[in-house]
Computed example of a mutant assay.
Amino acid sequence: MTIKKALIPAAGLGTRFLPATKSMPKEMLPIIDTPVIQYVVEEAIVSGIEDIIIITGRGKRAIEDYFDDSPELEMHLAKKHQTDMLKLVRDISSLVDIHYIRQKEPNGLGDAVLRAENHIGDEPFAVLLGDDIIVNNKPCTAQLIENFTKYGRSTIAVEEVPYEKLNSYGIIKGRPLDDSLYVLEDIVEKPAPEDAPSNIGAIGRYVFTPEIFDCIKQAGTGVGSEIQLTDGIRLLNKSQMIYACRFKGKRFDTGDRLGYVKSIVDFALQNESLRDDVLEYLREILAVNKIPAERKE
Rank of each mutant, 00 (worst) to 15 (best):
I52T: 10
I54T: 07
S70L: 03
H81I: 02
F67E: 12
K60Y: 05
H81E: 09
I53K: 11
L73T: 05
K87Q: 11
R58P: 09
A62K: 15
G57C: 05
R58Q: 13
L77I: 01
K60C: 10
D68E: 11
M75T: 05
D68T: 08
D51A: 14
G57T: 06
A78S: 03
G59Q: 10
E64F: 03
I63K: 11
I53N: 06
G59W: 09
L73Q: 06
K79H: 00
S70C: 02
T56I: 14
L73E: 07
M85S: 11
D65N: 15
M85I: 09
K79R: 00
K87P: 02
T83D: 07
M75I: 01
S70M: 02
E72K: 09
D68I: 03
E64V: 05
T83S: 06
R61I: 11
F67P: 13
E72G: 02
I52M: 08
D84V: 08
E72M: 06
M75C: 01
E64N: 06
Y66S: 13
I53S: 12
M85K: 14
A78Y: 01
I53T: 14
P71Y: 05
L73R: 10
E74Q: 05
E74H: 01
T83Y: 10
D84M: 05
I54Y: 07
M75G: 02
Q82V: 00
M85R: 15
I53D: 07
K87G: 04
I54W: 06
T56G: 03
L73S: 02
L86G: 08
D65S: 15
D68K: 12
Q82K: 10
I63C: 12
T56Q: 02
I63V: 13
I54D: 08
H76R: 03
I63N: 11
R58F: 08
R61G: 09
I52S: 09
D84S: 09
L77G: 01
I52R: 09
A62N: 09
L73G: 00
K79G: 00
I54V: 14
A62E: 15
E72N: 08
K80S: 02
E64Y: 02
L86F: 07
K87N: 13
I54L: 08
F67H: 11
Q82E: 09
R61W: 05
I52W: 10
T56E: 05
L77H: 01
D84C: 03
K87T: 12
K79T: 00
R61V: 07
D84R: 09
I53M: 12
I54K: 06
D84W: 04
A78G: 01
L86E: 07
E64I: 07
L77C: 01
I55M: 04
D65Q: 15
I54P: 08
K87Y: 08
L86T: 06
E50H: 15
I63E: 10
P71K: 04
K60H: 14
D65L: 15
Q82G: 00
D84T: 09
P71L: 04
G57V: 05
S70N: 09
G57R: 05
F67G: 12
A62I: 08
M85L: 14
G57H: 04
T56A: 02
T83Q: 06
L73V: 04
P71S: 05
D84K: 11
L73N: 03
I54S: 07
E50M: 14
R58Y: 10
T56N: 04
K79I: 00
E74K: 03
D65I: 10
I55S: 06
Y66R: 13
L73H: 02
E64A: 12
E72Q: 09
K80T: 01
I63A: 11
L73C: 01
K87V: 06
R58E: 15
